[in-house]
Design a protein around this nucleic acid. Structure first.
Lengths: 220, 220
DNA sequence: GCTGCGCGTCAAGGGAACGTCAGGAAGTTC
DNA sequence: GAACTTCCTGACGTTCCCTTGACGCGCAGC
């Protein structure tokens, strides 16, 4: 929730919290980008009139690394503003003043849409183990396998991109953060641990495959 | 495009056609569902005020079998209508009268969103092998072919420019870097390797074609 | 015919990337 | 504060890939 007017932030926070959303707030564009990168929100509500940077710049900044739904709030009724924001990558545009129930409906629509994308096959199965993305659990031969947070983070990204090659850089950025994109040694250590826990023959991995020089691939 | 007012349908048809969209129209809810089932549109623009059935019923009917983006048009400004339509499964709600450029921007936003979901099968096929650009995978006779990073880099550029001639200089710059634009020997070595892995008769390439003195061409 | 040029093919060496093991630091739990 | 977990780091052996050179072929120009 990004807005520079405290009372709007407050009203929205109350309404959204009451409905079970957990809300992160920012009052300008710079902190908005930081908070978003930190908190990985499921949906962004963004006021265009921010004190520091232009609202569309925030949209562009977000779109650089995420496809999270962005709902723009704005007092400007000029359609050129709408076009600009939508083409920058916003998903929806609501003009102030707005009804709370309308905003909530648009929020539900935005979340529902992205849930379709993510919610496909929350359970990934292989010949020797299963990964339950929603429950964050891994089973092998019926028994549950315990993974550390880092191990799970790695496995989750690979499982969500099953079949596709995931670049080392992306794995490092998503699990450890942007500053660690060169620490490929971490990947080797943790991939070895995952293989030891999950693969029938850790020395000859069938599901957690290395593509030398490029990255790793999860083969179901 | 579903609307019972002929002039709106006409205006939209002209505007959309001029921008390269192909437009299917219906003037009531029943035919709308038929036309949609028949024509499998990429996005639906739906007026709520239809002569036969309620607009939300059309949304529900569509949502039974498709996740196609639905943009609702309506003269009703009452926010209860918006909430109802959005919760029924609509993706966006535009109030009449609306600016054409705004609607077009919302259309682009809707199409862009769904393109992200579908766009995961960027696959280039030839008679003897297939290249999956997104997964970075190459298959030949059903079996997966392993490529090294350099081989893949080369093939990717050629596949993305399939049918077009790609200059040696461009290949060398894109794969090896600007300093290597004279190392044409690299190209010969790696093209030979790709042909050996992918072509039925490596000595007589059909898909990875040399244009002597100029460059190479990927022929699907 | 001979020579130079561009292209294709093959193989080998060196270096980069990878897998593995183990130990220590930091934080958690009881 | 002891036991435990988790993460990071270093060392070493192995695997894989890029580069490079040598050679053959076809073609055009001298």
């Amino acid at each position: 929730m990004v807005d520079d007017e405290p009372q709007i932030v407050r009203t929205l926070r109350i309404n959204l919290s009451a409905r079970g959303y957990s809300v992160l707030t920012a009052h300008d564009g710079t902190t908005a980008l930081e908070v978003a990168a930190e908190g990985k929100p499921d949906v962004v509500v963004l006021d265009l009139g921010l004190p520091d940077v232009d609202g569309t710049a925030v949209i562009t900044g977000l779109r650089g690394w995420t496809t999270v739904p962005i709902i723009v709030l704005s007092a400007r009724v000029d359609s050129a503003d709408k076009v600009q924001a939508l083409d920058a990558g916003a998903d929806d545009y609501v003009t102030k003043p707005f009804g709370m129930d309308e905003l909530l409906a648009r929020l539900r629509a935005a979340v529902r849409r992205s849930a379709v994308v993510e919610g496909e096959d929350a359970v990934v199965e292989t010949a020797s183990f299963t990964v339950d993305l929603a429950a964050k659990k891994v089973r092998r031969d019926g028994a549950e396998v315990h993974l550390t947070p880092t191990e799970w983070g790695l496995l989750e990204i690979l499982a969500r991109n099953r079949g596709r090659l995931v670049a080392q850089k992306q794995l490092l950025q998503d699990v450890w953060g942007p500053a660690y994109e060169k620490e490929t040694h971490y990947l080797r250590v943790y991939l070895a641990q995952l293989r030891r826990k999950l693969e029938p023959e850790p020395a000859h991995p069938r599901h957690l495959v290395t593509e030398p020089g490029m990255g790793y691939r999860f083969e179901p």
